[in-house]
Amino acid sequence: MIEQDWIWGFAGGLVIGLAGAVYLLVNGRIMGASGILGGLIDGSGRNSLMERLAFVAGVVLAPIPLVPLYQTVDTHVTGNLAAIVAAGLMVGLGTRLANGCTSGHGVCGISRLSPRGIVATIIYIMAGGLSVILFKHLLGVV
């Protein structure tokens, strides 16, 4: 099972990287989920509104026909609603302040050897690890 997981992980990763490569080489833009969505939310991306909407539509809609191929697709999101709201707020605010998330700083930044991308990725992974220790192991809220 675990072996299959990493093969699918690697294959999925290649598809994610291909997505970023197409966006960069054809449109000349960095594929960052928080940047593309954030520009729609705060109006900073009004000059590329349709492009952003098309990208978001693809992300949301493309998985739908594939979902029935899986026996179960479960995101296993916690039932703790307060934790969901708090996490959502922090992820939204944090990725916009940092100008990037796992796709922008992680995938696109590291592959370019961008110092900001590498620093951001190290910080959010360390914060994420500490967060799991705190909320899962010490407080037991998720």
Binding site: V59, V91, L97, A98, A127
Partner: peptide, 20 residues
């Protein structure tokens, strides 16, 4: 960059979802 990445990481660890 630092404050934002810390906030993002804490939220990411708490629920396990990032924007993508």
């Amino acid at each position: 960059l630092i404050v934002g990445s810390v906030l993002f990481g804490v939220g990411w660890g708490l629920v396990g979802l990032c924007p993508g």
